[in-house]
Computed example of a mutant assay.
Amino acid sequence: MSIKHLRPSGDADERSQLTGWLDLQRAGVRMKCEGLSEEDAHRAVLPSSPLMTMAGIVAHLRWVEYSWFHLDLLGEPDTGQTPWRDDGDPDAEMRVDGRKLADLLDEYDDECARSRAITARHTLDDLEKGQHGGDSPASLRWILHHMIEETARHLGHMDAIREILDGRTGYLS
């Protein structure tokens, strides 16, 4: 599958570049999961990272989207909906046994759509209202750069896991 059409134009403005590259990475998440069995979606193949499964990464990316755009940028309070806040388990979002990959992907897509809507309502210079733990508040520009990095890094994990699972490889275009 080719998703080359999602690449931003080389002469696009800064916002279009940032959102375009992020959307390209987001689309790659679903692409890497195409045709994967439920068993393989939950199979841990890296001995040193038993929670890093395809399903776990999808869930993690969903919550990363939520955290950066809702909790940090908008400053919304966490009312207990985030998995890592319930019992103090820092890897709680990766624990998805019994959750169907299709449901996790749909939740991720829905969260990405909410993130896009939030992004559209803000300037790149708008600062987060929540606290991300950095020295100074992050701008939306910084958050978008970080989300490209975060999503691409985990997409690389998914690529390696998928190759180990069934030999399937491929780039986004």
Rank of each mutant, 00 (worst) to 15 (best):
V58L: 08
C112Y: 02
R85G: 00
G10W: 07
L22A: 05
S67G: 12
Y171N: 04
L61Q: 15
V64Q: 09
K4Y: 10
L24H: 11
W68L: 12
L24W: 14
E76S: 13
F69M: 15
L101A: 00
A41R: 04
L165Y: 02
D135R: 09
E150Q: 13
R114E: 10
T151M: 07
D106V: 03
G130H: 10
I164D: 03
P83Y: 04
L74R: 14
Y171D: 09
W21T: 03
S16N: 14
A102V: 10
W21M: 13
T82Y: 09
R95I: 07
D11C: 02
P50Q: 07
D159Q: 03
A41V: 00
R162W: 00
P90G: 02
E150Y: 02
A41Q: 06
L74N: 13
L61D: 09
L24R: 03
G20R: 03
V29E: 02
M147I: 06
R30L: 02
P47T: 01
I143T: 13
R43C: 07
V45D: 05
E65R: 12
H42C: 05
A152L: 10
M54E: 06
V29D: 02
E76P: 00
L6C: 08
K100I: 01
S2R: 12
S115I: 07
W21N: 05
V29F: 01
D72I: 14
T19I: 13
T53C: 09
P90A: 03
T123E: 15
H154S: 06
R7Y: 15
R114P: 01
A120P: 05
G156P: 07
A27G: 01
G28K: 04
D126T: 10
W68S: 10
W142R: 08
V29Q: 00
C112H: 07
P90R: 09
I164V: 15
A152R: 02
E150P: 09
L6V: 04
L46W: 09
S136N: 04
H5F: 10
G88P: 00
Y171Q: 10
L165G: 06
V29K: 01
